[in-house]
Amino acid sequence: MGEPEPMTPLASLDRAAVMESWDEIQAFVAERGEQLLGSGPALYKLRLATEELLSNVIRYAPSDRAGTQAPLHLWLTFLQGEFQGKPALILQLEDNGPAFDPQLERERQIDTTQPIQERPIGGLGLFLVQQSVDHVDYAWSNQRNRYRLFMWLP
């Protein structure tokens, strides 16, 4: 797949990975995203993918971190670069939690033929991440989980 290049940082934010940081993080993504993508469908899709990933990090963050571990933290960075020959906006999300690969390269499917009464309540988040952005990847990098959401730019 290659790496995007060059990547120009545009804006960044870091906060503790707790629900108390939720509003500030969402506002950062919404406001900066609107500046960079406009207020149309692309912004909604980026916000949706971000929310799904952040929700997993914060909701499943271990409540009891061992004394020698740093508190769980999030870093968000908007970057611009070229990827797969196309200009792209990239929202990079990192956390310092235990390494966890959500296997984003594995295509998620929703069984829409399953009767509603039997549909599982969960499983929609990663599906929506994949459906919303143009490309998404994961890596364990510099002792952090790193997710990158790519939106092609016109």
Partner: peptide, 16 residues
Amino acid sequence: AFLSSAGLRALLFAKQ
């Protein structure tokens, strides 16, 4: 203005 999978889960919860 915005609904994520958390909202979808609420709808599915109600219908079930």
